[in-house]
Simulated assay, not measured.
Amino acid sequence: MSNPTKAVRGRGTASNPHNRFAPHLSVAEDDGWHQEVPPTRATEVRSEQARTIITRNQSPDVGFDRSVNPYRGCEHGCIYCFARPSHAYWDMSPGIDFETRLIAKSNLADRLEVELSKPGYVPQPIALGINTDAYQPIEREQRLTRRALEILLRYRHPVHIITKSSLILRDLDLLVPLAQQRLVRIAFSLTTLDDELKRVMEPRAASPVARLRAMRVLHEAGVPVDVLCAPMIPAINDMELERMLEAARGAGAESAGYVLLRLPLEIAELFEAWLAQHFPARAEHVMSLIRQCRGGKANDSRFGKRMRGEGHFADLLAQRFSLAARRLGFARRFEDDGLDCSLFAPPGQQLSLI
């Protein structure tokens, strides 16, 4: 059943669109016994005993083949989050359930050690927290990401992290020795420099200033950092692209990338409702530009097209990014990680003499 769509401070959405896997659809009807009972918006966290921790990926659009996600759902509440539809698999809505009903993989450390120690395991960089942010607010208490980093450091296994949280600075004592062995890169997702836009678009994520400060601290400590301007939303934040790249470069980012907004499955409904609520005068124009980039639809899931789009607006965005990146002197491609897989050594196993 959908919740009222009145804005809830601190949450990306107030609605719960129908779970596409549920066999029944509930619709609220006024029976004359109306009473004001505000819906619960507190965060609930339940534990899961995961059978596997390392997820394999074969998409040609992303630069990694395996990932580890400590959490299902994300309290950051980003309205555009591509992971929202995955919550339907757990019989929950991609709407406010995704932000408030979270799942922590409490046995992550044990399972990660088992999988890394399997005979014949061949190391490649692990992307940590790609589906949902590994440093979302519940990480302060759960500490699953920190445990994963402790294991990866002990095994000398390379790792990528993409985050929009300044909480990552808590783990500087692990990230520095990883960086010294060329075992880690950190990419910060930067979507805006406008605090008010950040507040309504990704309500519980760190402020732009906090992200840039975290980048600078990591860079000065010798931890390589990159920036990912994602997602770029036509007529909402695309006009900030060059300024975001400049700010990130000034904070020490070595490479940069961007992704055009994607609206798969339930995200399209959630995003259009968000537009109508926060940008009613621009809503129709924004969706028109998105459809121009997506072959007349709200989304295009084709490999090779889904991250960048096509058409005049998408081409112009690509040109703007390329020119700005060249002007600012970003020294490397975002996809080139430069991480060292040769140091991998599970504790107790003899090192190769070759």
Rank of each mutant, 00 (worst) to 15 (best):
L212N: 04
N299W: 09
V223A: 08
L339I: 10
P264G: 08
R170T: 12
P38N: 14
R249S: 02
A345W: 04
Y258I: 02
T145W: 05
V45H: 03
I161G: 04
G12V: 00
A134W: 00
V68A: 02
S86M: 08
R327F: 10
V209N: 07
V114I: 11
I126L: 10
V200C: 11
K164V: 11
A235R: 13
A7V: 05
E220T: 08
R111D: 01
A273P: 00
T43F: 01
S93R: 01
A187E: 06
Q292S: 15
A276V: 09
R262N: 01
L128D: 01
A214K: 02
C341T: 14
A104S: 09
I162Y: 09
A318N: 14
G348C: 11
V223W: 03
Y89Q: 06
R333H: 13
H34S: 09
E75T: 01
L108N: 03
L261D: 01
M244V: 10
V286I: 14
L317G: 09
R262Y: 01
H87E: 11
K305S: 15
P234D: 05
R294V: 11
D226C: 03
F330M: 11
L339E: 11
F313G: 13
R302T: 15
T100E: 02
H160L: 13
F21N: 06
P158C: 07
A214W: 01
L149P: 00
V176A: 07
L172I: 14
F64L: 01
R20I: 05
T5P: 06
H312S: 15
P346Y: 04
D195S: 07
P224S: 07
L263G: 01
A251G: 05
L241W: 01
T55Q: 12
E99R: 03
Y135W: 06
A283L: 12
R282M: 12
S86P: 00
Y258C: 05
L174W: 14
L241E: 03
P70T: 03
F321G: 04
L197A: 08
F188I: 08
L190S: 05
L289G: 08
A251K: 06
Q292L: 15
C229M: 07
F188E: 03
D340W: 04
L149D: 10
A28F: 00
R302H: 15
